[in-house]
């Protein structure tokens, strides 16, 4: 029976199937919100109000011709999308949505899973860089270098931001952090700066406006993905959607009190809380223009990192006071 549960966990919920279906749904929500902000309709034809459009796009890309450039490093070029997709899918398994038991640690929920999920979510950026490097194209190379520059800008504030709730709860396990805040919901308000920093950093991690510098289409065509087509591009697209779900899930678990109440209520909480984060992300990309890479780096070190540090100091003092 435990074996069956593990398979269910890996393949259905919150594993592959759920992440695929839910990420396409989140992409649809994001596109619809973006369209509404811009006074447009958004996707309308595939399914009810275009709800199946992301799946249709995915299937279409899977069916397209897959071209590998002559001069590209072929092994790396082919391996990178799979590696990157694997890392975010693995990160998805660590989300504290469905536990066999809160009290005991398991392979998917353990002390330190917060660090592992942050690490797994950072891996795609390196994959993008490698993809750009392996493509042997001018635009890809610039895109790849920009990915790394951006990584140095947002990753430190991101880590600092997720540190605060962990320090407050005194645990490195997301399920326990969530349980701590479920017991003391008012403490969530303490972390409001860290929440803001984390959301902005997540936007940068997802490379969306105003931080879509690595694949700014009017500057570097497709950035690291310029030479990718067909199945591999589909994988990158899917990966970005899943990264959004997992990132939003992580922020919801840390800053919004997690997903209490067992399987069904927990699922509903998960949908509601991730959609709150997605709404903020969509609004952010509607109202801003793309920054330049130097502006992004200075913004990150001038504002995001100090704000996250300030939050950490506040949390440490508060924790001492409360004890």
């Amino acid at each position: 029976m435990d074996i069956l549960k593990i398979f269910l966990y890996l393949l259905v919920y919150p594993g592959l199937l759920f992440l695929f279906v839910y990420s396409t749904f989140v992409e649809w929500i994001d596109r619809k919100l973006y369209a509404k902000f811009q006074n447009r309709m958004g996707p309308m034809y595939t399914g009810s109000h275009g709800i199946l459009q992301p799946i249709a796009d995915f299937v279409k890309l899977m069916a397209k011709e897959d071209i590998v450039p002559d001069k590209a490093d072929k092994k790396l070029f082919n391996a990178v999308p799979i590696l990157a997709l694997t890392s975010v899918l693995t990160a998805g398994l660590l989300l504290p949505v469905w536990h066999f038991s809160d009290a005991f640690q398991s392979a998917t929920s353990f002390q330190g899973d917060l660090i592992v999920i942050a690490y797994l979510l950072a891996l795609p950026s390196f994959a993008y860089f490698l993809a750009g490097w392996a493509s042997a194209s001018m635009y890809s190379a610039i895109g790849g270098v920009r990915v790394l520059t951006l990584l140095f800008a947002y990753e430190v504030p991101m880590f600092l931001a997720i540190l605060s709730p962990a320090v407050m709860a005194g645990s490195w396990r997301m399920a326990e952090i969530a349980a701590y805040y479920q017991a003391n919901p008012w403490y969530l308000l303490i972390n409001v700066f860290a929440f803001a920093v984390a959301v902005v950093a997540l936007q940068a991690k997802l490379e969306r406006v105003p931080f879509d510098i690595p694949h700014a289409e009017t500057e570097v065509v497709g950035g690291a993905f310029t030479e990718y087509s067909g199945r591999k591009l589909a994988m990158f697209r899917l990966l970005a959607d899943i990264q959004m779900v997992v990132g939003a899930g992580m922020i919801a678990a840390l800053f919004l009190g997690g997903f209490p109440g067992g399987l069904i209520p927990g699922f509903i909480w998960f949908v509601v809380k991730t959609l709150i984060v997605v709404f903020i992300l969509a609004a952010m990309r509607s109202v801003t223009a793309r920054l330049r890479i130097d502006q992004m780096v200075s913004f990150s070190w001038k504002w995001l990192a100090p704000l996250a540090l300030l939050q950490l100091v506040i949390v440490i003092f508060l924790k001492g006071y409360l004890q």
Partner: peptide, 16 residues
């Protein structure tokens, strides 16, 4: 101009 700096909302509004 909005589109070239990645500000597509501006683009959609003016074109409407």
């Amino acid at each position: 101009a909005g589109h070239e700096v990645g500000f597509d909302t501006f683009f959609m509004y003016t074109w409407r």
